[in-house]
Structure formats: C-alpha cells, structure tokens
Amino acid sequence: MAKEIEVFIKLQVKGAQANPAPPIGPALGSKGVNIMEFCKRFNAVTQDKPGKILPVLISVYKDKSFDFVIKTPPAAIQLLEASKLKSGSPEPNRKKVGSVTWDQVKDIAEDKMPDLNCFTLDSAMRMVAGTARSMGITVAGTPPWGGEAE
C-alpha cells in the first residue's frame, strides 16, 4: 500500500551542503523526521553539484519516513551561473549581471522544457530570454529565429 503523506515540503538547497539548520531543521524536525538522515542522503546524491542551488520536493509520510525528488535548478539560477562563467567576474549585488549567448539560452531552455509548459524549443528559449532580460542579463548576438533580440 502506498504510504500516506503528511506534508510536501518544497525547498531549494545547495548541492552537498544540506545541514540541520533552517529551513531544513525546523521543516523536517517539527514533523519528527530524522533530519540527519535526510542531510546524509541529499548530500550523497548531490556530490556532483556542490554549491549549486537545487529544488528538492520532499514528501514526509505519516510514519515519519520521507522521500525526495531533486529537480534541475531554476532558469534564473542557471542564467546567473552562465553569465558568470562567461564574464569570469562573479560580483554579487551589481545591477547589470552580465551577458549570456543564445547557445547558453538554448541549453537552459532544453533543460527546463519539462517545467516551462512550452510546446516548442523556440518558445522555451523566448521565455528563458525574457527571464534573462528581467534580471538585467543581456543575450548577446542574433536569436536563432533571426531578427533582433526581443
């Protein structure tokens, strides 16, 4: 029989860096879950992505056990990382974050397609480019569908 769910918890946690501090501590601890066990497992499966912010959906069951699913980072996080890689100057707190290429936008769009409710890669890319614009990140060059960047 499937286990009865007590609560879903949606967190975004840095890969390989989960620890029993807030929000993991209070969110899981208040449900009687063994926090250290969650941290050990989350950190083990994210050893390839240390420090990257990863969305994780945790199901806490009535019997105090848990399961979790890790998703790919939000487009905004990926854009921020891509823009830093390119400029090579990770300076926080700046208005203009940097720029990315259309190839990078395409990679992110492909990665996030399942979450974006887009039917075509082009529309997913437009959406990711729109997110970049809202963040002050410019997309350099000509979009693959031609014309000016929107």
Partner: peptide, 27 residues
C-alpha cells in the same frame, strides 16, 4: 518573479529557500 528573486538572493548570500504559496522564504 519568484525564481528571479531567488537567484538574486543567492548572491546576497542567502543559502537556502522554501517555496510557499505566497512566494518564498529565504534563510
């Protein structure tokens, strides 16, 4: 805007986030 804010907050440097129906808790 939530994901954008989250990305920007990660540089401040907030280290962990919880998604809520109203938006976001940042720690």
């Amino acid at each position: 805007y939530r994901d954008i804010l989250l990305a920007m907050l990660s540089e401040l440097p907030f280290d962990t986030f919880e998604e809520t129906p109203e938006g976001l808790h940042a720690f």
